[in-house]
Simulated scan of single mutants.
Amino acid sequence: MPPKSINSLMKHLRNQGISIGGSGQKRKLKNIGYYHGYKGFRFVGDSSNRLPISDFNQIISLHAMDMQIKTLLYPHIMTIETALKNYTLEAVLSYAKSEDFDDIYRSCLTAYRGYNPRTDDYKKSWAKRLRLRQNVDGLISREQDKKPFFKHFRDRGRTIPIWAIFESMTLGEFGNFYACLDRPIKGAIVTDMGMPSQYDSESLLLSIIFALKDLRNAIAHNAIVSDVRFKTGDISKNVGKLLKSETNIGLINFSDITDYVILVVYLLGLLKLPKTNRKRLVSDYEGILLRYKKELPLGIYGSFVRTETQKKLKLLKIYVTKS
């Protein structure tokens, strides 16, 4: 079957009970894409949860809301990623007394030693360490002709220093690196960040890194984020407990995008970013929601924004003011 023209796609939408017509909406459909736009926003979370879309303008509003949330969050995610790498780099260099990855591999990436050698956890941790070694070698091979500092060290017969490797690591690769670190090094990182000692913050930070990885990748690849369909795995319930203890906000289970906003605001607070910046993030996010609450039918808007969202944002403002 040949691909449908834009006119045929508009006719198909009308056959689906969705009002669309005119050159303006035709242009908007071309701009957002039939598959990325309509196909992406005709459901929430899972393809079985179809939305009662009746007008193409509703698709336009959902797309605009999602784009604005991504635009708002992306620079903050990048700030957190950079800071996490720098906190980790400082702790690793302090323990290893070397910037050579081979030295760090021997002295710092030894999480497997925390398990009984006869257990499956020991074997899994050891295997994860081996995969990390392979992934770092692959990263160096992948980037050696792209990054000037990689070429600089390679052409002078020197090993690639850990800081250069960190510069090229994805957030997922960094998460695997952190997972392989010996527990005292993880402890030094979370202590430096100011995470609470009454929780297993070393483990919680790993869960947080992978939660952020999913969100960052979705934003970077322009995937839909407003219904958190980007989440690839369960996030430890203890992350929600940590945030409840720190912010007084309950019901945090990362089933909606507001919970990720709370996490980002909390991490920015740990990093001592100005209070005005954090307040602006919360108010800008709230402004986006209020705008599209007016534009979208309640049955559609409520599928993306939970009833407890306003209460969460009120408590988040109080937390930022006091922190």
Results as ranks from 00 to 15, higher is better:
residue 182 D to I: 05
residue 206 L to T: 03
residue 163 W to R: 15
residue 147 K to Q: 10
residue 218 A to H: 06
residue 183 R to F: 00
residue 143 E to D: 01
residue 209 I to P: 06
residue 252 I to N: 12
residue 189 I to C: 13
residue 252 I to H: 12
residue 157 G to L: 07
residue 199 Y to V: 05
residue 218 A to F: 03
residue 160 I to P: 00
residue 200 D to E: 08
residue 250 G to T: 09
residue 232 T to Q: 13
residue 237 K to W: 00
residue 220 A to N: 05
residue 239 V to Y: 01
residue 166 F to L: 11
residue 188 A to V: 01
residue 181 L to P: 02
residue 162 I to Y: 02
residue 216 R to G: 05
residue 201 S to D: 01
residue 153 F to E: 11
residue 216 R to E: 05
residue 210 F to N: 15
residue 170 T to R: 14
residue 185 I to N: 06
residue 244 K to G: 08
residue 177 F to L: 08
residue 199 Y to M: 08
residue 215 L to V: 01
residue 231 K to Y: 03
residue 232 T to I: 04
residue 143 E to K: 15
residue 150 F to P: 05
residue 231 K to A: 13
residue 143 E to G: 00
residue 205 L to G: 05
residue 191 T to I: 05
residue 179 A to T: 01
residue 227 D to W: 03
residue 179 A to L: 04
residue 238 N to G: 03
residue 189 I to Y: 13
residue 147 K to P: 02
residue 234 D to F: 09
residue 250 G to V: 06
residue 151 K to E: 10
residue 189 I to G: 11
residue 250 G to N: 13
residue 230 F to S: 05
residue 244 K to N: 09
residue 244 K to S: 12
residue 198 Q to R: 14
residue 163 W to Y: 07
residue 224 I to V: 10
residue 246 E to L: 04
residue 207 S to D: 10
residue 214 D to G: 03
residue 240 G to I: 04
residue 192 D to H: 14
residue 211 A to G: 09
residue 213 K to P: 04
residue 178 Y to F: 09
residue 149 F to I: 15
residue 157 G to N: 10
residue 154 R to Y: 01
residue 160 I to D: 03
residue 172 G to C: 00
residue 149 F to E: 15
residue 217 N to T: 04
residue 145 D to Y: 05
residue 233 G to P: 02
residue 245 S to K: 13
residue 215 L to I: 03
residue 163 W to L: 12
residue 247 T to E: 09
residue 178 Y to A: 01
residue 207 S to G: 12
residue 242 L to W: 03
residue 209 I to W: 10
residue 143 E to V: 03
residue 210 F to C: 13
residue 218 A to Y: 01
residue 154 R to C: 06
residue 155 D to E: 14
residue 161 P to Q: 13
residue 217 N to S: 10
residue 192 D to P: 07
residue 223 A to P: 05
residue 174 F to H: 09
residue 208 I to A: 09
residue 171 L to T: 00
residue 163 W to E: 07
residue 193 M to L: 06
residue 169 M to V: 09
residue 240 G to R: 13
residue 237 K to Q: 05
residue 176 N to R: 15
residue 183 R to S: 02
residue 181 L to V: 04
residue 165 I to R: 13
residue 144 Q to R: 15
residue 151 K to P: 01
residue 164 A to C: 09
residue 247 T to M: 13
residue 251 L to Y: 05
residue 190 V to F: 14
residue 180 C to Y: 13
residue 174 F to N: 08
residue 202 E to Q: 14
residue 193 M to N: 07
residue 144 Q to F: 02
residue 186 K to Y: 02
residue 230 F to H: 10
residue 239 V to E: 06
residue 190 V to C: 14
residue 176 N to G: 12
residue 150 F to V: 00
residue 194 G to K: 13
residue 226 S to P: 07
residue 240 G to E: 00
residue 201 S to Q: 02
residue 249 I to A: 15
residue 218 A to R: 04
residue 251 L to E: 04
residue 158 R to K: 14
residue 189 I to P: 08
residue 211 A to L: 06
residue 248 N to V: 02
residue 207 S to H: 14
residue 148 P to R: 15
residue 252 I to M: 14
residue 196 P to R: 12
residue 228 V to Q: 11
residue 150 F to T: 09
residue 174 F to I: 02
residue 239 V to D: 03
residue 204 L to W: 04
residue 148 P to C: 00
residue 204 L to R: 14
residue 199 Y to I: 01
residue 165 I to N: 11
